[in-house]
């Protein structure tokens, strides 16, 4: 299958290893990956911060770039949530209902793609470490991702999966919230870091590098033993 990768702007810039890992996993499974150079961003930061006209501009560009893509893989649950939940509303405003309706069924978050579209749970990875899963709010409440990450991780050789207590609690990232209300965001992060510490896991994983950047930033600042890693990077091992 020809899979078009929408890597997401912040992964492209700050977490290229995640994009590479997605390519590794999909190619290992026998698929062809393409990367459309014109791609940029989903518009989430603008939309969530109240800059709707700008977000609509970014949406238009996304629709143009991926118009004829067969399957679009996104290693970022929050970008998928943006596309699924908010593009239809913005489309109505921009007269792009048909374009958005046509693209939505072809957009998959990375773990959704593996399980729902490709029907794989064992991607042939080996990772002999103790891992816990952070369920990002977007994957939980918008994508209803359920236990997809856990099912993929259980099939990884050598991996010990440990459940994270209070997994449905927000980690406190929330995009510009992390900056605008940095202190409350940090208080929420502290709870998340305590929960991670309780598991004794070496690695906290998720399908969103945005939350992970925030959590990992806190963990390294405190010299805590655990580190964060995107799920694609585990599945690529």
């Amino acid at each position: 299958m020809l899979i078009s990768l929408f890597v997401a702007c912040y992964n492209d810039t700050l977490f290229p290893e995640t994009g590479k890992a997605v390519v590794t996993v999909l190619e290992r499974l026998g698929h062809t990956v393409e990367f459309r150079q014109a791609q940029t961003c989903c518009g989430q930061m603008h939309y969530n911060t109240g800059y709707r006209p700008e977000a609509i501009g970014i949406m238009k560009h996304f629709l143009e770039v991926f118009r004829d893509a067969e399957v679009i893989c996104v290693p970022s649950a929050s970008c998928v949530a943006m596309i699924r939940d908010h593009y239809p509303k913005m489309a109505a405003e921009a007269g792009l209902e048909a374009e958005v309706a046509a693209i939505l069924p072809r957009v998959f978050e990375f773990t959704e793609l593996l399980i729902d579209k490709l029907g794989v749970t064992d991607v042939g990875a080996t990772y002999p470490h103790a891992v816990t899963v952070h369920t990002s709010c977007h994957s939980l409440r918008s994508l209803h991702i359920g236990d997809k990450p856990q099912r993929l991780l259980k099939a990884v050789k050598g991996l010990t999966l440990i459940e994270l207590p209070n997994a449905d609690q927000c980690c406190g990232f929330g995009g510009t919230f992390a900056i605008k209300n940095a202190e409350v965001s940090t208080a929420m992060l502290n709870e998340k870091m305590n929960a991670i510490a309780q598991t004794g896991a070496e690695i906290c994983t998720a399908g969103d590098n945005s939350c992970l950047m925030h959590i990992n930033g806190g963990l390294t600042r405190l010299d805590a033993p655990a580190r964060c890693l995107h799920i694609a990077e585990i599945l690529a091992q």
């Binding site: 890597v7 492209d12 290229p16 994009g19 990367f35 992060l189 930033g217 806190g218 600042r221």
Partner: peptide, 20 residues
């Protein structure tokens, strides 16, 4: 506001698109 309590990720030498 970020950096008071959280380290920023280090900036990779190569973006994904450069690697690609």
């Amino acid at each position: 506001g970020w950096s008071t309590t959280r380290d920023l990720p280090s900036i990779p030498k190569q973006t994904f698109r450069e690697w690609w």
